[in-house]
Simulated scan of single mutants.
Amino acid sequence: MGKTGFWSHPLVESAGYFSVVVLCLVVSMVLFELVTKYKNWEEIRKGNFSVAMATGGKIFGVANIFRHSIQQHNSLPEMLGWGLFGFTLLVFAYILFEFFTPKFNIDKEIEADNRAVGFISLTISVGLSFVIGASIS
């Protein structure tokens, strides 16, 4: 069918990108669950606002990276590759955040519902997602 076929219809392409990004978000949340010392969804269920902010920042950050990747790349595999690369940089940034704060443990502070640390974690994830997104464009 070529370029005008079913698979190149904007609705089909949008559904494809959406599906892939949702799957990547699920995978990224599983990976962040492994990286953090606390159980994200258990803490959120208990009302830990700091964990909710930190997790929300990660979700926003991953989605924003993939937004940039979708805008700048012409194929699903290319978008996926750059998006995953951007996600890897975001995980690396989280590890650096922990490393550059030796006076206290980020994960312990967030688990203890230290909202200042939760907010900084959110801001770092969101802020760096814009930088990462611009760099993969």
Rank of each mutant, 00 (worst) to 15 (best):
R115S: 03
G5C: 13
F99V: 01
K46W: 00
S50M: 01
L128W: 05
V51M: 00
D113G: 04
T101C: 05
T101Q: 11
F97Y: 11
P10K: 09
F85S: 09
N74Q: 12
S8H: 15
K58M: 07
W7N: 10
I124H: 01
I95T: 04
S50E: 00
A52M: 05
S28P: 01
T101V: 02
T88H: 05
K39S: 03
I132D: 02
A134S: 10
E78K: 10
D107N: 02
G83N: 15
L11E: 02
Q72D: 09
S135L: 14
L31D: 01
P102T: 03
G83I: 11
N64S: 15
H9T: 13
W41I: 10
M29D: 06
V22E: 04
Y17H: 13
K37R: 15
A116F: 08
I65S: 06
A63I: 13
I110Q: 01
Y38S: 01
H9G: 12
V62D: 02
F6I: 14
A54Q: 04
L76T: 09
D107Q: 03
L23F: 12
E111K: 12
S135T: 15
V30E: 01
F49P: 04
G16Q: 05
S50K: 01
K103A: 14
H9S: 13
H73N: 07
F18V: 06
A63V: 12
P77T: 00
V30L: 14
T123Y: 10
T36G: 08
G56R: 00
W82I: 09
F32I: 07
H68D: 03
F119E: 02
N74W: 07
N74G: 11
L89A: 12
N105P: 10
T4L: 15
C24L: 13
S121C: 08
E109G: 04
M1R: 12
S28Y: 11
D113N: 08
G5M: 13
V20S: 07
E13L: 15
K103V: 04
